[in-house]
Amino acid sequence: MNQPPSRSLESEGLAFFGIVTASISHELKNVAAIINESAGLLHDLSVGAQAGRKPLDPARVMKLSADIVRNVERSVSILNRMNRFAHSVDEPKQTVDLFALCRDTMALAARAAVSRGIELIDELPNQTAPIPSFPFGLYRLLYQAIQIAVLDVQGKPSVHLSATLAPTLVRVQLRRDGSLMCTEEHRTRREAIEKLMQALGGCVRIDENMPDAMGVQLELPTS
């Protein structure tokens, strides 16, 4: 059987960018939809009150206004994340807070994970982890690591992301319950992680032969 040629890191990067921005646009559409309905309901209630059908309930109005404000804040948070992600494409090697970038990537991957019924759990230390690296490469690496960890999850569907900071390296770990089936998707993602890690000068270990769990360990140098 003829296999399609493997894509270069660049075209894979473009595909990754597309997946993430599509996911963000869906999230923003949901937020816009909620704001639209809350504003629409405020309008409906005002029209009803003006026509003398039912007086406006101040508590209801305040609740709807608060809903709008909360969803505007939610949209700003999504946009900030999107902005950081979009700028990362052209950024040179620089000092990056790996834990902050891990959290951003978790948020970017959360929608895809949730669509599979899987919760991503943040167990990262509450500190910074500065490392010299390429932000876009790190986004891709972490996203792929999360994707491999959410493959074929059975039972309790959660993936835990934790990390330790040593003098010369940062170790990021993803673990989940349930063994991993070796599928084509798994092989493709594994190859992608290995290629990315090679480009970023770190090393990766994927524990896939444990009977009832699997883990991904990423080690990146701090200097």
Partner: peptide
Amino acid sequence: EELVETIAER
């Protein structure tokens, strides 16, 4: 949930 509840009310 917020979306369906608000649409339902409208």
